[in-house]
Amino acid sequence: MSGTLYGIGLGPGDPELMTLKAHRLISTANVVAYPAPDSGESFARSIAASALPSGVREIPIVVPMRTDRFPAREIYDGAAKEIAAVLETGQDVVTLCEGDPFFYGSFMYLFERLSDRFPIEIVPGVTSLTACAAQLRRPLTSRNDVMTVIPGPLPDTQIRQKIDQAQAVAIMKVGRHLARLKALLAEMGLIDKAGYVERASLPEQKVHRLIDLDAETAPYFSMILIYKGEEAWTLPPSYSS
Rank of each mutant, 00 (worst) to 15 (best):
M1F: 09
G9E: 07
G9N: 14
M18R: 03
L20R: 12
K21S: 15
H23Q: 14
L25M: 09
T28R: 06
A33K: 02
Y34T: 08
Y34S: 04
P37I: 02
F43S: 12
F43L: 14
S50Y: 10
S50N: 15
I59W: 09
T67V: 12
R73Y: 09
I75W: 06
Y76E: 02
G78A: 15
T89W: 00
D92S: 10
V94M: 00
V94G: 03
P101F: 04
P101A: 04
F102K: 08
F103T: 13
Y104W: 04
S106M: 08
S106Y: 03
R113S: 03
L114V: 10
P119K: 08
I122M: 03
P124H: 07
S128I: 06
L129N: 11
V146G: 08
I150E: 03
G152N: 07
G152V: 01
D156C: 13
D156T: 15
T157M: 10
I159E: 00
R160A: 13
I163S: 11
R176H: 12
H177E: 13
E187R: 01
G189H: 05
L190R: 06
R199T: 13
L202P: 11
P203I: 02
Q205M: 13
D214S: 12
P219M: 06
M223F: 06
Y227R: 14
A232Y: 00
